[in-house]
Amino acid sequence: MHPTDRLRPAVAHALWHLVLAGASLAMAFPMLWSLLTSFKGPQDVFSPSPLPWPATLDNYAAVLSSWPVGMLVGNTFIMSAGVAAGQLVIAVLAGFALVVLAPRMRPAVLSACTIALAVPPQAIIIPQFLLTTRLGWQNSELGLIVPQLGTSALAVLLLVEHVAAVPAAQIEAAALQGARPIETLWHVVLPAIRPAILAVGILVFITTWNEYLWPLLIAPRSHDATVQIGLAQFQGEGGTDYGALMAASVLTSLPIVVVYIIASRRIIDSFIKAGLRP
């Protein structure tokens, strides 16, 4: 795997950069190219030159005027924030119960979570869809948010280990001071696992933001849709205005990428601590 050891260190180092830079470029290429294209004028859109010159913001202006970006982003933000908040509440309460209040339930409940995680969403989507429409939640944020709380299993698996890492003596000390369980959770456990909550929350937020199938079924109409549905429809309709399409794609993806890159250290830490280094 590493014939590099036999080479001179400088050469090995150069090779290291070469491989990683190449891989990084390949992995980030589609988004990078989208970003560059979004600044190109209509005559340069297909130009193989990577540099957008002359650069223009026309594409963004076109998208912002013809596409309900604000509404789509708003819908998606409400959905993602709702799902993240809901899953965090579920996971924190469950984690506290499984570590502090009813540790005996822990293996069984965590197994149920693992199995739920492995179920492919498409395999159970018809009953989910039927139930949601029967509840009258089509084309509503409720219909977008509540069914997606079923995927809380990952948040539970990630957070339960963090709750378990809170020193038991602190929890006992709080109880001896007269704290009720909910007060122990609020005053002792929550502050201790705040970084993990933030990391898991961001992870769920991003996953939900990128969700495609469920919003496609529940809220396909343009004014209830999420950015993913909007983007897919935009691509279907205005398929030839690639500059504007790339601008739309960048507008809906870049904020998420930036948030992730800033938070990635924390997210990885939460994976490590959760023992999800499988």
């Binding site: 980030a28 988004m31 950015v227 691509q235 992730y260 890159i261």
Partner: peptide, 30 residues
């Protein structure tokens, strides 16, 4: 490098698909 390599994890699949559709355009794609 790590930050760049992680990008595909978080970019929306729809955005990636859109980008590829553009790159693979049979007439003028890159």
């Amino acid at each position: 490098y790590r930050a760049l390599l992680f990008v595909p994890v978080v970019v929306a699949p729809v955005a990636v698909a859109t980008a590829w559709k553009f790159l693979l355009n049979p007439l003028q794609g890159l």
